[in-house]
Design a protein around this nucleic acid. Structure first.
Lengths: 185, 185
DNA sequence: TTGCTTACTTACTACTAAGTAAGTATCTTT
DNA sequence: AAAGATACTTACTTAGTAGTAAGTAAGCAA
């Protein structure tokens, strides 16, 4: 019973993750939904408006999820984050950040800002999770928590990209080794 | 004294790394070189032909470089690899793999194959470097060498992407922490 | 000097992209 | 019942895109 607008965002989200922001057109959205090109423009006048909505939707999902996990131990929270990426991988999707970062220079300034906002939110959450986890002796790593957060996000992001090229097992090999590094002493 | 063909490849390489394969046009190449659109088509009839040449050129550069490093100790070889990415970062370029992996699904089968070839060559070299380095006690890491190679490549690739979004210091924080992890006991 | 090749340019085709203006059917409010 | 808002469609413009066909100027080869 989802409205057309939601269907457009959902379809566009999928297209960004599979083809990239510059490689899909309004027709790629309108044709499968059996509406006209102009109907997409009605809801999102410019492509950047649609892009911003996709990122905003992802931010909402992320903060919703992490909020639900807040009561869990940190290693468990981290594991949930990995699960999300595991599902992306099995569905052949890459993460939004990974996709939009490649096209970053070609995005409008307001869309660039929204992508940066998403990055900050994810990194801040992960840095905090790692810091708390180390305090509780549930996670083990050397160096600064924010550098480690960068490494982990960077790995999750890129493992989906590599999976696409080198086969989907690449993701599992990376994720399993990373979790082992962090959780075992 | 470089010929037009070389200039085209070099310009296209730069464009792939800054804008992405689908986001640049033949005009983006021909205009700065002060030649016509059709001149690019003369050397590379289809865009995929140009793409394959870019990847082939990168493979040649990589094998050339690693060949020159072969006599160095493994930690030194690894450091050279990081240096290459450090230069990419300072020039605002992302690596070819990172850029082409995002657009992978939209590439022609023969271009996909060439990208996969590049991935295999890089991973094989790095896996071997890590394995030898561990034997010589110059590098330290847990788990399988091929999984660790995936992690390192994945990090280098993605750190350039993150740098673009979160600021260029992201790369240095990731690279420094990674090298510390591997080189210190 | 004739003919062939290389490296282009000129001038186009066919197509696709984002975006818009104006019209229409269907609810909702007054 | 009238007026407006909502959610579109129809039909279009403008501005690109990759790609091509045909021509040309310069160099080399017999």
């Amino acid at each position: 019973m989802a409205g057309t607008k939601d269907k457009i965002v959902s379809m566009a989200d999928r297209l960004v993750r599979t083809k990239g922001f510059n490689a899909f057109s309004y027709k790629d959205i309108s044709a499968p939904l059996d509406i006209k090109n102009a109907a997409v423009h009605y809801h999102f006048p410019a492509k950047a408006d649609l892009g911003i909505e996709i990122v905003a939707h992802e931010i909402a999902l992320f903060t919703g999820n992490t909020g639900k996990w807040a009561h869990l131990p940190e290693d468990e929270q981290l594991s949930r984050l990995f699960d999300i990426f595991r599902r992306y991988n099995s569905e052949g999707n890459i993460c939004l950040m990974g996709s939009l970062a490649t096209d970053f220079e070609t995005l409008s300034p307001d869309m660039q800002a929204k992508v940066q906002e998403m990055g900050s939110i994810i990194l801040q959450w992960l840095t905090n999770c790692l810091e708390q986890g180390r305090k509780n002796k549930r996670l083990h790593f050397k160096g600064a928590a924010d550098a480690r957060a960068l490494i982990i996000i960077s790995n999750l992001q890129s493992s989906l990209l590599l999976s696409r090229v080198m086969g989907p097992s690449a993701f599992h090999r990376i994720a399993d080794q990373l979790l082992e590094d962090l959780c075992q002493k």
